[in-house]
Simulated assay, not measured.
Amino acid sequence: MAITRSRYRTATSAGTFVAFLLVLIFGSPAYVDWARSADRGIFLETLAWPAWSFDSDASVRDLLGADLKAILLVAFTALFISLLAGAQLASARGTLSAILTGWAAYMFAAALAAFVTSFLLPHGSLGQATVNAAAGAGYALIVGWIIGLATMAGRRP
């Protein structure tokens, strides 16, 4: 019996790869500085939300919180897409269902990543963590359709 590998990308790997690219490109210090330098519009400014940097002038706590938020966003995206894509019913495996699954997974991932990393910041509290989680969910509400399209293109279990 020969073992064959699928040449198709799964929904989880496609969505995670696109989330990684979004965080890597649009969270970079160069893009964040460009987006914040002038009025670029809500979409281009929102793309800069999970900003990461290796700034030596920032405190270690701030640096760790920002970088960990970007890493956790990608990791939680993989987790939630695999959980949600596997839970789809056979009758709900359409295009719209796949887009909404990826979009929702990205919203959950962004909110959870922002919530968890809020406690690393100075004066971290439950209230501030909730506000940051809402900001993460707002980011994913505007940008998450891109992840939804990527999961639509992938093969679902």
Rank of each mutant, 00 (worst) to 15 (best):
F54S: 15
D57S: 14
A75N: 02
F80D: 00
D55Y: 02
A70N: 04
L64Q: 06
L68M: 12
A70W: 00
D55Q: 09
G65H: 08
F54D: 09
S53W: 04
G65W: 00
A85D: 09
S82L: 07
D62G: 11
G65R: 11
I81V: 14
V74T: 10
A87Q: 08
V74A: 11
L72P: 00
D62W: 10
A48F: 00
W52L: 13
S59P: 12
T77E: 10
F76Y: 11
S53E: 11
L64G: 09
S53P: 00
L64N: 11
G86H: 11
W52C: 09
A78T: 02
L79V: 14
G65Q: 08
F76E: 05
A75V: 14
A75P: 03
L83H: 01
I71R: 01
A58S: 13
D55P: 04
L84P: 01
L79D: 01
A51V: 05
L72I: 01
A75Y: 09
I81K: 00
L68F: 07
V74H: 05
F54K: 14
A87P: 12
A51F: 02
A85Q: 07
A87C: 10
A51N: 09
A78Y: 06
A70H: 06
D62H: 11
L73F: 06
L73K: 00
L68H: 09
I71F: 07
T77Y: 06
V60F: 04
A48D: 12
K69M: 14
D67Q: 12
D55H: 05
